[in-house]
């Protein structure tokens, strides 16, 4: 499994890339790998106000559907519409295929997330 240094990770296998008060959110390589070929992504509506732990979207393979939870709170500023046409991008490049951008309302939430090393360790323990 791959991780990228500098990103934040959640125990539900989402990654967060922080850019000022904006956060790009996607699912990790580990998550896409265990789902298999991704066939559909349900995106949130822009403008939606989400608390950390709320459902951000749904990622589906042929035989599984997995809710994606936002690890941080904020307002959905942008969604990655490209994934509607090409959901397989998540398989091909999980760390480039963000699902949505949130305008963060509480930067301190980021401190609770894992860094790449911690996340890798967590995945190993989980297995």
């Amino acid at each position: 499994m791959k991780t990228v240094e500098g990103l934040k990770y959640s125990k539900e296998h989402e990654w967060v890339k922080v850019d000022g008060n904006k956060a790009y959110i996607g699912i990790t390589d580990h998550a896409q790998n265990s789902l298999g070929e991704i066939v559909f992504v349900e995106l949130p509506e822009t403008g939606a106000e989400l608390n950390s732990g709320d459902v951000l979207g749904v990622v589906e393979s042929v035989k599984a559907a997995s809710d994606v939870y936002t690890p941080v709170s904020g307002v959905v500023a942008e969604v990655n519409e490209e994934l509607e046409e090409s959901p397989e991008k998540i398989n091909e490049a999980p760390y480039e295929s963000w699902i949505a951008v949130l305008e963060l309302s509480d930067l301190s939430e980021l401190d609770k997330l894992l860094d790449a090393g911690e996340y890798e360790k967590y995945c190993k323990e989980e297995a």
Partner: peptide
């Protein structure tokens, strides 16, 4: 033969 279920769903 085995069918492409991912294509059908995508």
């Amino acid at each position: 033969l085995r069918l492409d279920e991912a294509k059908a769903a995508r």
